[in-house]
């Protein structure tokens, strides 16, 4: 059970959060016309690393804001400060 730091609320128990998968995956721009490969990449492909993973959490039983942080998928250690999840563009 992780202790996750919310930028708005401070350190909170994992059960207050909902995991939102990998951070930094850009959704299609409104009015963009992605190729089938591009849309499939957005929908189905994630990096799934062994080690540092940049991921999103939603403080669903708290302030309901989305936050991003880096966590080791080996030790579960949270390796970064949490930040508000902003718009990501590569």
């Amino acid at each position: 059970m992780l202790l996750i730091s919310c930028p708005w609320c401070g350190p909170r128990e994992e059960i207050e959060f909902r995991n939102g998968g990998e951070a930094g995956v850009a959704a299609p721009e409104p009015d963009a016309e992605p190729t089938t490969d591009e849309i499939s990449g957005f929908l189905f492909f994630r990096s799934n690393p062994k080690g540092s993973f940049h991921e999103r959490w939603n403080h669903s039983h708290g302030c309901r804001r989305w936050v991003s942080l880096t966590r080791s998928t080996i030790t579960h250690e949270i390796e970064s400060e949490s930040q508000p999840t902003g718009r990501f563009r590569p």
Binding site: R18, A27, R56, N58, S60, P84, G86, R87
Partner: peptide, 12 residues
């Protein structure tokens, strides 16, 4: 939840 997610993370 869905609408909030798009609003916060894609269309702030």
């Amino acid at each position: 939840d869905w609408l909030e997610e798009w609003l916060q993370t894609e269309w702030p």
